[in-house]
Amino acid sequence: MAKKKDVLLDHDYDGIRELDNELPPWWVYLFWITIIFSVVYMFHYHVFRTGDLQIAEYNKEIDPNWKPVEADGTGGFLGIYRSPYTSPKGDVTPFIEEQFASYVGPELTSDGLIMEAMRRADEPTLNKLKADFPDLFKQLSAGGAAIVPKKAAAKETVEPMEALTDVASINKGKDIFTKNCVSCHGAQGQGGIGPNLTDDYWIHGADMAHIAHTITVGVPAKGMITWRGVLSPEQIKQAASYILTLHGTNPPNPKAPQGEKHTYPLQ
């Protein structure tokens, strides 16, 4: 059959005529390609399951060595939400310990986490955990005291650290302070939502090492975020060094003293 071209049909709608042209071949191919793509796509991800769906993708992004585990109803302590933080055996890795410490309080031990997991688990998970950790289960059934976070120590022991004193570092520290800290501690460190940083009173320690530590881990209970991850260790050092220079500057509108009085010069 000869290729039809511009054949006018007998259609006439208010003067509009219609031609009977063939579908453009490239258009037809395009349509078929997208249909084939779609079938392959669905088979790849949902029939053969050869492709990574979003959670597998995420797990690999967090841990390149992550391997999927067949779901057998005994997954980790959040069931199907098992994150890369648990090993296939269900052990709590140091990583997840750290993560959950920031959720439930820094003092929770891994035993506490496992007990928390049991408390929340569905029946099959609970049985698995019970088999793996019989002692903890006993403790849990006896009242679960371990879940309650221990009282936070007022001051943690930290490695001593020397303050930076060169002008460049102090200036960098000032920039970091202005950008990140002033919304709570005030433009001159006089305090606001957060405590005054210019007086003799400190809640979490007054020396370089403690200030750097406080910045690093934050005070989540009172709304100060953990700056590790936002600021590099070097930047934290610079910020802490700058904060030390604020002492005794007596800015206007200071916040009332909070914490323990320290005698200066510091020991």
Binding site: D14, I16, E18, L19, N21, L23
Partner: peptide, 14 residues
Amino acid sequence: PKAADRPIYSYRLS
């Protein structure tokens, strides 16, 4: 097609 005064290109494509 009204403004251009031309027939529709392809009925079967429609």
